[in-house]
Design a protein around this nucleic acid. Structure first.
Lengths: 126, 126
DNA sequence: TAGAAATCAATAATCATTATCGATTTGGGT
DNA sequence: ACCCAAATCGATAATGATTATTGATTTCTA
C-alpha cells in the first residue's frame, strides 16, 4: 500500500468515531458525536470524509435504514441484523457461507463483497 | 396474471409492471413504463402504491442503489447479486445460498426475513 | 518562509421520497 | 340508474438526505 499522508485532526476524529462504535452510525449521528469535541464542524465534512473513507476501502455502507445510509468501520467479513422497529444494527460474526461463493463465478459474475442481512425485532423491541 | 379485481386499473398496472419484470425496478422506472399506457399517471401514485404493496407484503425492497430504492415482486426466498458498475440486480435462486438458519433466536432476536446480497461486477460489466 | 495543495465551514443545489389537498372515480345500498 | 361515502388519483408543495460550490483557512513541501 502506498504511503498515506497523515489525516487531519477532524478527519481522524471522524474515522475514530466510526471505528469506535458498534452502532453502525449515520452521517448525522457521527456529526452530533463529533460536535462535542469540534463544535464548528460541518455536516458536509462528515459526508465528504465518509466518501473518502469508502474510496479507500476502510469503511463501507451496511444498509439504508429509514432513508439514512448506515456506515460500518469493521472490514472483517461479517453479517448484520437490522431491527425493523428501532433501526438498530447488530454485528453477526458467524459465517459458514464462504464455500458457496464460487457458484456465481462460473457465470461470469465477479464477487467483490457479500452482505448477509437479517431483518426482525431485536431483543429490546421484541 | 396478478390482477386483483378489487384493485383499480392503475394500481393493477403498477403491480403487474413490478411483477412482470426481472429488473428489480425503481419507482421512476415503473413510472416511465406505466406512462406508455397511462400517460397521465403521477409519480406520487407509484410511490403511494408501492408503499401499499409493501404493507400487504406482496413486494419488498431489495436494496438502495445510487440513492434509489429497488423493488422486487417475487416473494419466494431468494438472494440477489448487485452489479457495482451498472447497478443491475440479478436473482439468485439457489437452495444452498438461501438455507442459512438462525443463530440469533437464543438471544431474543426475532428474525422476520433474511437478505443475502452479493456485490461485484455482473457478466456484462466484468 | 512562501507558495501550492489539502481541508474545511457555510451554504446552495439536487434528488428521491412523502405529505397535502382538491378533484375524480368507484362500489354498495336503495 | 342514482346517490353518497370512501377510495383513488394528479398536481404540487414540502421534507430530508446527500452532493456540489465557493471562498477561507490550514497544512505540507521545497
Amino acid at each position: 500500500m502506498n504511503k498515506r499522508k497523515n489525516f487531519s485532526n477532524k478527519r481522524n476524529a471522524i474515522l475514530n468515531t466510526i471505528c469506535n462504535t458498534d452502532c453502525h452510525p449515520s452521517a448525522k449521528w457521527i456529526y452530533n458525536k463529533i460536535k462535542d469535541k469540534y463544535p464548528d464542524i460541518s455536516l458536509g465534512t462528515i459526508y465528504r470524509n465518509i466518501a473518502l473513507f469508502k474510496e479507500e476501502g476502510i469503511v463501507r455502507t451496511v444498509a439504508t435504514v429509514n432513508g439514512e445510509e448506515r456506515i460500518d468501520g469493521k472490514t472483517e467479513p461479517h453479517s448484520h441484523f437490522i431491527c425493523t422497529k428501532c433501526g438498530s444494527i447488530y454485528d453477526i460474526f458467524n459465517e459458514e457461507l464462504t464455500a458457496v461463493d464460487s457458484i456465481l463465478c462460473d457465470e461470469g459474475f465477479k464477487i467483490e463483497s457479500k452482505c448477509i442481512t437479517y431483518y426482525g425485532k431485536c431483543n429490546k423491541c421484541s
